[in-house]
C-alpha cells in the first residue's frame, strides 16, 4: 500500500485531523514517537497464525499504539507501547499486518474486513 496516497486521502477527507495525527498506515511505516489506534489486524489469507499471534500480544482493534523505538539498521525491529500498559518488540514485516489510524477517531471500527476495504480503496 502506498502510504503517501493514503495520507492524501485522509487529508482531503478529514482536513482538520490531518495536521494532528498521521493518516491511516501500516504500523511498520510509523516513526518513533508516532501515536495511533489499531484499525485492523490481518495476517493475510494464508496466515491466520500471525493474526492470532498479534492479537494475543495485544494488537487488537481499538488499542492505543505508540512507537517507542526503532532499531539501528533499517529501523528494524520496532518497540511498540500498547494501551500504555505493555511494550512489544516486533519486526517491520509483521508490523505491517497491523493497520493504524488516527488516535482521535472516536468511531472505532471493530470489523476488520470493513476497515481493510476502506484502507485499500
Amino acid at each position: 500500500m502506498n502510504a503517501n496516497a493514503e495520507r492524501e486521502v485522509r487529508a482531503t477527507g478529514l482536513g482538520h485531523h490531518a495536521s494532528r495525527t498521521s493518516s491511516t498506515q501500516p504500523l511498520g511505516l510509523m516513526r518513533c514517537g508516532d501515536v495511533g489506534r489499531v484499525l485492523a489486524v490481518n495476517g493475510g489469507v494464508d496466515d491466520s497464525d500471525l493474526e492470532r499471534n498479534l492479537l494475543e500480544m495485544g494488537f487488537v482493534e481499538g488499542a492505543r499504539i505508540e512507537v517507542l523505538h526503532r532499531g539501528f539498521l533499517g529501523g528494524d525491529p520496532l518497540a511498540v507501547r500498547i494501551n500504555r500498559r505493555m511494550t512489544i518488540a516486533l519486526r517491520r514485516c509483521e508490523a505491517n499486518a497491523v493497520l493504524i489510524g488516527p488516535l482521535h477517531d472516536s468511531v472505532v471500527n471493530t470489523h476488520p474486513s470493513m476497515s481493510l476495504e476502506y484502507a485499500s480503496s
Binding site: L50, P77, A79, L90, R91, C93, E94
Partner: peptide, 9 residues
C-alpha cells in the same frame, strides 16, 4: 519461512 519476532519488553 521466517519466524516472526513477537516479544514483550
Amino acid at each position: 519461512g521466517r519466524q516472526p519476532l513477537l516479544m514483550e519488553l
